[in-house]
Design a protein around this nucleic acid. Structure first.
Lengths: 192, 192
DNA sequence: GCTCGATCCTAGCATCGCTAGACAATCGAG
DNA sequence: CTCGATTGTCTAGCGATGCTAGGATCGAGC
């Protein structure tokens, strides 16, 4: 039995290596540079090995996305709990979100721009994704305002953050005044 | 001279054909299906002809984006001028924006999701792009609120719309309550 | 009618995601 | 301890991608 367990451990270890390497490569040179050949070469296995772990490149992207969602949820919760008062909490949350997107562009792409084969806003949505949304909801729910459904408010706030993140990173918005945009957004949306 | 003019006309005509065909194909089957081979086959020329008009696939996407920007600007202005009062105008603007994104997903992708090699928020930004932003600014500037820079407000509002558009279309937001999200957004952001 | 430049196409390159089939290592039964 | 079966991995290759080199064709101008 022990030998099988060892193999299983090694296999799981290799899977982590694949995901970590894909993420690293994507952050360094963008997702276009993450080809199955290059990825295989970096982990020092042949291409088909990748397909014994994942159904295809999409699933690898999806794995990176899930990893990123967990980290993002943690970062959001950390920022929220460090702030006192609803207002400063929401501001910290927004800054943390945008900061995460800027510091981990490849992960953010895997999450929200690329097709990682993940289900969203559905029953079979993976736990990390639900949890990341929950992390937003925890801080945003309390500033939704009277008579406004907290979930709906969170969706709108999240969409605004997502828009700022993607448009800024794509060069559609000048990065200089990012901070003032956040302030304006929080000012208007949060009912403190 | 006349013969050269005819050739020039035919060339311009063919260029329009390329862009229109690319757009049509993208709307029908998505941008992934827009390969240089398929595109060449549809316009009944060989592949290299595409490269005598455009530097590459990117530039074709960019051409579709510019065409789309012009249409979007017109649609936004039409919606704005049909409404009376700042508040209803902004609501109409938001609905029109999201409607455009939903009805022309490929064009919207060319504009804001894909790399069409276009400059944004810079001096050499093509006129249609500046004009589409201007169309937003015209209606949004008047509801920015006191002491808030109209341009900055427009950027934030636009980012929120962009977030709603992309997240909804990618299945990240349930489409059922799209209308309520728009109402909430306008309610909070617009200072009427 | 001839020449020569512009125009277009055939053919091909490197690379992509993905897979079939050969080979080697390991395991379990006799 | 041996030997077939299973498991694991690799080499090689398929069809498709964006893009380009080089030859063929055609037509304008003398």
């Amino acid at each position: 039995m022990s030998v099988q367990e060892r193999k299983q451990r090694e296999r799981a270890e290799r899977e982590r290596l694949i995901v970590a390497t894909a993420r690293e490569l994507a952050e360094q040179q963008g997702w276009d540079a993450v080809t199955t050949r290059r990825l295989a070469e970096r982990i020092e296995y042949s291409q088909p090995v990748l397909y014994s772990h994942f159904r295809g490149k999409r699933e690898i992207i999806g794995a990176v996305a899930l990893e990123g969602a967990t980290e993002m949820a943690a970062a959001l919760r950390a920022a929220a709990s460090a702030a006192d008062g609803p207002r400063t909490r929401v501001t910290a949350l927004a800054r943390t979100y945008l900061d995460f997107a800027e510091r981990n562009p490849a992960v953010y792409d895997a999450l929200f721009q690329l097709d990682g084969g993940l289900a969203f806003a559905a029953e079979d949505t993976p736990e990390p994704l639900k949890d990341a949304f929950a992390a937003l909801l925890e801080s945003l729910g309390e500033v939704a305002g009277d008579g406004v459904h907290p979930g709906l408010f969170t969706e709108v706030f999240w969409a605004a953050l997502h828009g700022l993140a993607t448009l800024t990173r794509a060069g559609r918005l000048p990065p200089a005044e990012a901070e003032r945009r956040v302030e304006l957004l929080v000012d208007r949306l949060a009912m403190v």
